[in-house]
């Protein structure tokens, strides 16, 4: 049933019994002016687009994402061509109309390679943000709603992950080519995209859990939650219908920031050689490949992947800022 139909039905059945109980004086207060307010998500969108920098960042982010998605179609060259003599002969060409970002030390088109790397970065960034949000929200929800021993247990578990030296764990994991979960089932190797997403999410969900728990602890004292309990609503309903929707703001903001963080971490790992392995391409290993070019004519080889990395992380952070302001009107100036 469309909302229009629903509306009409309510209106009609209301008219049938109108006047049976309510007195006219009482209806007066209700029917007189209502403050005109836009629907909530529309006003969030309005506030977000009011934030110029965030809007620009979102635009750039979308363009970059589209470029990465369509890499196969818009890439002028094969990013990993067989290293034939003709390819090798065009090595180290400066940016030109033919090769917009130039060619690398082996003659491969840098633009095509950056587009592939961008896809890799976005996959990891979005994947990690999504997965760590799911884990964090689940843990935080259970701890914040049920409190007591469940909370104590889950929060100690969270603390345990927080004190892990993340970099050491990541570097060790990268050395283990065929990991499994205590021999029970196989895990993708840490140097594959999937493995990296799993690993970074496993090491990155804790702040989200704490944020969600904190939100719930304050929300569950609010009277509308008490009202739901008084109506007989159980835990799952209160969490899904009341607590979660009212925590969407901080969750979305933090998840957005997590995207930037994960992209940066993936690039760092690949730079250190503990990320995706050659011949797979990542912004990190593109930069690593070109680390000796700083100060030479070939500096464009490090400049372009570096700029793209910088741009995408910056965009993610600005989008996060814009969302924070848009979702929390109090934070505005």
């Amino acid at each position: 049933m469309s909302s229009f139909d629903e509306h009409r039905q309510i209106r009609e059945s209301g008219a049938a019994i109108a006047g049976s109980v309510g007195s006219t004086a009482l209806i007066d207060e209700a029917t007189s002016e209502l403050v005109i307010v836009r629907s909530q998500w529309r006003s969030v969108a309005r506030r977000f687009f009011h934030h110029r920098v965030a809007t620009l960042a979102l635009l750039i982010f979308i363009l970059l994402a589209l470029a990465a998605l369509g890499a196969n179609f818009i890439s002028p060259y094969d990013p990993n061509p067989p290293l034939t003599a003709s390819v090798l002969s065009s090595a180290r060409e400066s940016p030109s109309a033919q090769h917009l970002f130039g060619t690398d030390k082996l003659g491969r088109d840098q633009l095509s390679r950056i587009l592939v790397a961008l896809g890799q970065s976005l996959q990891v960034g979005l994947g990690v943000a999504l997965l760590s949000t799911i884990i964090g929200v689940t843990v935080g929800s259970l701890a914040g709603f049920y409190r007591g021993w469940i909370d104590a247990l889950l929060m100690r578990f969270t603390d345990l992950f927080l004190v892990l030296p993340a970099l050491a764990v990541l570097l060790i994991a990268a050395k283990n080519p065929e990991p499994s979960f205590f021999g029970l089932f196989d895990l993708p190797p840490a140097t594959s995209t999937e493995g990296m997403i799993l690993l970074l999410a496993a090491l990155g969900w804790m702040p989200m859990a704490r944020i969600v728990r904190g939100e719930y602890l304050s929300l569950r004292e609010r009277e509308f939650v008490e009202a739901a309990r008084a109506a007989g609503a159980g835990g799952p309903r209160i969490i899904l219908r009341h607590l979660l929707p009212n925590s969407v703001g901080p969750i979305v903001v933090f998840a957005t920031l997590e995207v930037g963080l994960a992209i940066l971490t993936e690039a760092t790992l690949s730079f250190l050689g503990a990320g995706v392995q050659i011949p797979a391409i990542s912004l990190g290993n593109l930069i690593a490949d070109a680390e000796d070019t700083v100060g030479t004519d070939l500096a464009y080889l490090i400049l372009f992947p570096g700029l793209v990395l910088f741009l995408i992380v910056l965009c993610a952070n600005f989008i996060g800022d814009g969302l924070r302001d848009a979702l929390d009107p109090r934070a505005r100036k």
């Binding site: 909302s3 629903e6 509306h7 039905q9 309510i10 209106r11 059945s13 209301g14 008219a15 019994i17 109108a18 006047g19 049976s20 109980v21 309510g22 007195s23 009482l26 209806i27 207060e29 209700a30 029917t31 209502l34």
Partner: peptide
């Protein structure tokens, strides 16, 4: 739906405000 509009009328609100 019927009960909701009945309730709104009962407390002196226009049932059309349900949305």
């Amino acid at each position: 739906a019927k009960r909701i509009s009945e309730l709104l009328t009962m407390v002196g609100l226009d049932p059309a405000f349900g949305g």
